[in-house]
């Protein structure tokens, strides 16, 4: 169990950006996430690892209330955004506003069948931003942050679907960054990509943490070890262990964590 005391809030000088407090989530009568508590540190990369079906993606999707789109789902517990300490799962908070502050990149690149420009501008357009110059600047900034600007600056009007898989995923990252989110959620962002594109995205994610807090779900333990600052290991819906990434990978405290990271199951 992770403590929520003051010392955890400033672990190693890191400041908490959000805190999950005894969060459970169920589809119908099946509880998929069971009383998970963990901190999310500001401008750090937090990785969630665990075998398939352990609830890590479900937990990630609680952060932007994605589950609200489907029926028969229930949250219990809190995800508090800090420092204002507001529970984003509370029913009096509009999920649309949550998603405006916490954006998401999915497992499979899912650009809209629109131009490269319009894909990145989409988040601004749905917020009603009209000023052409502001939209253009933001699109350029987001594409540059996603390391895609130089490759696409001459064909912003071309269809996003003409890009390669890795480029499409970086476009989706640009789309998620364009609205200046506080937290970016990455759901196995490289699982559909080749090793070179994967390396590219990993580098990118590491540079992004200068400005934004990142939570990444990954199947790839090496990836978690390479890029994350903190790692949470989930198993059967529970958070088994949470800690700084080097410590968790070299000296896991729980036997199940050790079995998983040494490849005995999963």
């Amino acid at each position: 169990m992770v403590n929520t005391t003051q010392e955890a809030a400033t672990a190693g000088g890191d400041e908490m950006r959000a805190e999950i407090r005894r969060l459970s989530f169920s589809y119908g009568d099946k509880t998929v996430v069971k009383s998970v508590s963990m901190p999310i540190y500001k401008d750090r990369i937090t990785a969630l690892i665990g075998p398939s079906g352990c609830g890590k993606t479900t937990l990630l999707r609680c952060f932007n209330r994605m589950h609200d789109l489907y029926n028969d789902t229930e949250y219990e517990g809190e995800i508090a955004l800090l420092p204002e300490n507001r529970n984003i799962l509370s029913s009096d908070i509009d999920p649309i506003e949550v998603r405006m502050r916490i954006s998401m990149v999915f497992q499979k690149p899912n650009p809209f069948p629109k131009s490269i420009f319009e894909n990145v501008a989409y988040g601004l357009r749905v917020r009603g931003v009209k000023r052409r110059s502001f939209i253009e600047e933001t699109v350029e900034r987001a594409l540059a942050q996603a390391g895609l600007w130089n490759e696409v600056k001459d064909r912003l009007g071309a269809s996003a679907l003409a890009l390669s898989g890795g480029q499409q995923q970086r476009l989706c990252i640009a789309r998620a960054l364009a609205t200046d989110p506080e937290i970016v959620l990455l759901d196995e962002p490289t699982s559909a990509l080749d090793p070179i594109s994967t390396a590219h995205i990993e580098e990118l994610v590491v540079t992004l943490k200068q400005n934004v807090t990142i939570v990444i779900v990954t199947h790839n333990l090496h990836q978690a070890a390479r890029i994350s600052d903190y790692t949470g290991f989930m198993y059967l819906g529970e958070l088994i262990e949470f800690g700084r990434t080097p410590g968790l990978f070299t000296k896991p405290k729980d036997a199940r964590t050790e079995s998983y990271i040494t490849g005995r199951f999963g």
Binding site: N64, M66, L69, I96, E97, R99, M100, S103, M104, F106, K108, N110, P111, F112, P113, K114, Y122, G123, R125, V126, R127, C172, R175, A176, A178, T179
Partner: peptide, 25 residues
């Protein structure tokens, strides 16, 4: 549905998702 989720994930409403993503697609 992954196109709808992409739209919701950046803060679009149901109406915006219907008219800006689903209908054009």
């Amino acid at each position: 549905s992954h196109l709808r989720e992409a739209s919701y994930a950046v803060g679009a409403t149901r109406f915006q998702t219907s008219f800006r993503v689903v209908i054009p697609a």
